[in-house]
Amino acid sequence: MIGVCALLLCAVSLSPAAASEQAQAKAPISSTIAMIGAGNMGQALGNLWAAAGYHVIFATRNPGELDDVVATAGHGAEAATVAKAIEQAGIITLAVPYGAEPAIAKAHGAAMKGKVLVNVDNAFEHRDGEVATKAEAVGEAVYSAQLFEGTRFIRAFNLKGAGSFPSPEGVESADFEVPYTVNDESARHIAEALIHDAGGTPVYEGGLENAREY
C-alpha cells in the first residue's frame, strides 16, 4: 500500500521510474479529500481512505445529517458543506448521480480549478436524462472533464460496485484491478496512491479519450 506518503510526493518506496515521474510533477497537494456525495460509493471509498491516513471530508447539501457516516469512517473524518470541503481539500472526489454534475460544476467549478478531481460517476439515461445522452456521445470521462475545466482529472473506480470494495482491514489482502485515465500526467502518481490505498492495483490506460465505456 503506497499511502499518504506517495500522495505528498515522497519517493522513498517508489521505483526509479516512478520517482522520476514525480520529480516532474506539480507541487505537492493537500492530503485532504473532499468526498462530494455520501451514498454507498462515497462511503466505501471515504472509509478506506480515512483508514489509510487521508483527511476525509464528506460533503453534501445537508452535512448535519452525516453524523453516522462520519462516525463509521472515523480516523478524523468530518462533514461539511460542498463549498467548505472543496476549499479545504487538495483532492475532490465526485460520487454523485451523473446528472448532478453540471449543477455542481456551475456552482463550484471555479473553486476546483487546479485541484485533483477524481470522478467515479456513471451516466444512465433512465436516471440522468439529457446529460447522460450528451456524455455518452463524447465519452463520460471527456464530458465530465469539460464540465470541470482546469482540474487535474482522474477517471477511476466507476467500474467497481460499492459493495465489492474490501473493508479497511482487508485492504492488504485485496486483489482487484482498477483501470484509470487522466488529463494530466502529473496526476498519475496521485491516482495510483488512491487506488492502492483502496486495495486495488492501478491499470493506466492513458488519456481520457481512452476511457471507452467509462
Results as ranks from 00 to 15, higher is better:
residue 162 A to N: 04
residue 84 K to D: 15
residue 55 H to K: 03
residue 43 Q to K: 09
residue 133 T to R: 15
residue 39 G to A: 11
residue 142 V to I: 10
residue 60 T to K: 10
residue 205 E to L: 15
residue 160 K to Y: 14
residue 14 L to S: 07
residue 210 N to T: 14
residue 153 F to T: 04
residue 50 A to T: 08
residue 177 E to G: 10
residue 64 G to T: 09
residue 80 A to P: 03
residue 189 H to I: 03
residue 201 T to M: 14
residue 38 A to G: 14
residue 111 A to E: 08
residue 148 F to W: 13
residue 47 N to A: 14
residue 12 V to Q: 15
residue 8 L to Y: 10
residue 31 S to D: 10
residue 185 E to Y: 03
residue 87 E to P: 02
residue 74 G to V: 07
residue 198 A to M: 03
residue 22 Q to D: 14
residue 110 A to S: 13
residue 54 Y to P: 00
residue 41 M to D: 06
residue 89 A to G: 12
residue 76 G to V: 00
residue 184 D to V: 08
residue 165 F to W: 01
residue 41 M to V: 07
residue 204 Y to V: 11
residue 4 V to I: 11
residue 163 G to A: 13
residue 66 L to G: 05
residue 194 L to I: 11
residue 94 L to P: 05
residue 192 E to R: 07
residue 157 F to E: 02
residue 9 L to H: 10
residue 176 F to A: 07
residue 211 A to V: 04
residue 44 A to L: 05
residue 29 I to E: 01
residue 174 A to S: 12
residue 169 E to M: 05
residue 154 I to E: 01
residue 195 I to E: 08
residue 52 A to C: 02
residue 75 H to T: 03
residue 190 I to G: 02
residue 4 V to A: 06
residue 55 H to L: 02
residue 102 P to W: 01
residue 54 Y to D: 03
residue 51 A to D: 07
residue 159 L to S: 15
residue 141 A to C: 09
residue 50 A to H: 04
residue 17 A to D: 13
residue 199 G to F: 00
residue 202 P to Q: 09
residue 140 E to D: 09
residue 206 G to P: 01
residue 105 A to Q: 10
residue 118 V to G: 06
residue 74 G to H: 10
residue 117 L to S: 08
residue 166 P to I: 03
residue 108 H to A: 03
residue 156 A to N: 05
residue 109 G to E: 02
residue 147 L to K: 03
residue 145 A to S: 15
residue 41 M to Q: 12
residue 63 P to F: 10
residue 174 A to V: 00
residue 22 Q to K: 15
residue 188 R to D: 04
residue 82 V to H: 03
residue 196 H to K: 06
residue 176 F to L: 05
residue 122 N to Y: 06
residue 140 E to I: 13
residue 118 V to D: 05
residue 94 L to M: 13
residue 146 Q to T: 13
residue 182 V to F: 03
residue 176 F to Y: 11
